[in-house]
Nucleic acid binder design. Structure first.
Lengths: 203, 203, 203, 203
DNA sequence: TATGAATGAGATTTCATTCAT
DNA sequence: AATGAATGAAATCTCATTCAT
């Protein structure tokens, strides 16, 4: 990569990182383009070379962060439980994501309820962090390991992600209806129940 | 209520209604106090006689609309299925809410993912529409009819509401992963599974 | 007029006057809304209560100033030469305008070549300075005094105004092809010739 | 011309042509250096290798376009009416220019009222399109053919050009006070009258 | 010569809030 | 209680110009 190209990527990354910090610290509305540019150490006009406006940079951040989150969970699964079956793998990923969000509340607050199925799909389509993999590939890999078959697996995963994102947010951020540690057994059990509901009789 | 009092309530309602319309049409950020006052046919200064700022009026709207939504579902249950058991009643309410949101997409877009357990709780605390009832009363009434007992019923309802709100939003607004009509059987089935997971063995 | 109304007119006038000063001193491009507001002693936002943008205030100024210029010439004619015939009156007005522009070069530079027939027409339509008179009324009055009849008098006046505005500008501002004093005899003579060319044979 | 020289001229021409298009399409103020460079297919910095700023390129365009306009009229006169007398030649040129402006309204809108005596003079001084001729040469040639003599011919031509430019603009662009077709007889007649007013008694 | 990323001053515009009437 | 003119801080965004490559 040429020096110029390198420098460009550097500036863009700096804008993204500092925007994320500000969004999580002050919120989207209270963060101004000026804030972002200043913190990133670039001129205000430079921001507009890379992003259309505040919402543009936010969307790219959501895509990046969502993809990274899911990707980390999957990578960990491969490392820690390379032999896990499908159901076990799915529960491992759900648990991993919940734990990470619990430890990284600012990330959760930022992703808010955009942490959803469609966000994941979009994130895998747009994210530059993962180049040669798509959500479909991830899921297919998970399925390939499974001898059990499921009715409409995509819908199943959708429901699980929505439930994790939504219930996790409420529990972690507001402690409603109870802290995550208390909620988790019921939440995981419910996920288990949902999976069971989608299981097809063995062929 | 005196004529003056009446007039005041009239202005406040007009502000609330027109704010709701604008929020759903243009979004919160793009709606200004001026817009709201103008559409409501009052002067800008008048807005501040009734609400603190834009976020104040939004919160009151969320509370009102959420409470109305849940209240209508419950009222309908009492009318249509006065003898429904607990589980049946819960499923009826879930279905009712989903249908109403599907038919009233602007309401759904406004409530967004604020359609959650905590919002319901808050809405019942703050809402002026329902004066002498609380969420607890509603739920207790539902439970009283039931002979079956549940482990941690509040968490159960929480999970169901989160799932409905989150999955319903994605499906109705974005058609992701599929339209509501297609999703509903799986969604209702999953709710059923969650309920089952919380059921205690008959005493 | 109420105190508020009075104050409003005051602010608007102040904006108009100070904008005119700045436009003539620094030119349209170099004058900013901030400049105008500051010089007028009002807040920047106040500018936008009265004018859409810089071009809006400029157009109103052109209309006002054009109308005032023509109006002063006509008033002077009535005072100085109440018995002048049509041709004499027209030449008097032409001469009067030329002299005023020559003495008020900033006005001329501002009106530039917008000092034209259509500007006059517009100015009489829009200008608030002259309330109950229109260009047509002025011209009709001039004509009424005349026993001579003209082919297409409106076109005649149009050509004369265009010639005065255009040639006058060049001569006064650039001294091209010669200063006004030198040009005037030929210019007035040419106007005279144009008038003669429009004269109809006596009925 | 070397290949490099050729390439340079090519870039300069491209900048000029595309600037002209943009000026006529969007106006001077709304056209940016970026726009021009982009449309011309060169980098922004390259613009500054050829022109000082936006006003520099505009002035060169006015000079070029004015000179071309007048030149075409004269060339046509030589071809179509090689034996025309002075008065006839002048009227022919006036008519030719009016027709061309009428057919090429964007050119007229661009030249606006810069279509004037001084612009013509400047254009002949600066224009690169006509290398070995000057306005004076043109006019002298016209005059040489004439046996009639005129008082102050330069002023005469000045007045005619101003009248054509100013009245033509109003008529062609705004249709004020009437379309060119309607205006032309009166306009040409007035020019004729002006010429007559400058004619000296035959020696 | 040519490029185009970077600059950053500054222009335009918005809008929540106040306060005199 | 109601008004709406006025404010002015602050936000967004532009763009001519420079300069390292």
């Amino acid at each position: 990569m040429s020096k110029v190209q390198n420098n460009k990527q550097h500036k863009k990354d700096s804008l993204l990182n500092n925007a994320f910090t500000l969004f999580t610290e002050k919120g989207l509305n209270k963060t101004t383009i000026s804030d972002i540019a200043e913190k990133a150490g670039v001129a205000k006009g430079t921001f507009y070379l890379y992003f259309k406006d505040k919402y543009d940079i936010r969307n790219r951040l959501i895509a990046n962060k969502s993809a990274e989150l899911f990707s980390r969970a999957y990578m960990d699964l491969l490392t820690e439980k390379p032999d896990a079956g499908f159901e076990e793998g799915l529960l491992y990923i759900a648990d991993h994501i919940l734990n990470e969000l619990n430890e990284n509340k600012t990330l959760l607050a930022f992703l808010h309820k955009d942490l959803s199925w469609s966000a994941f799909k979009k994130s895998f389509e747009e994210a530059t962090v993962i180049d040669d993999n798509s959500l479909e590939v991830y899921i297919r890999k998970l399925f390939e390991k499974s001898s059990i078959r499921f009715r409409d697996p995509e819908t199943m995963i959708f429901l699980i992600i929505e439930l994790i994102g939504s219930a996790g947010y409420s529990s972690i951020i507001y402690g409603e209806p109870c802290p995550l540690e208390e909620l988790k057994p019921d939440l995981m059990k419910s996920i288990q129940c949902i999976i069971d509901g989608f299981r097809l009789p063995a062929a």
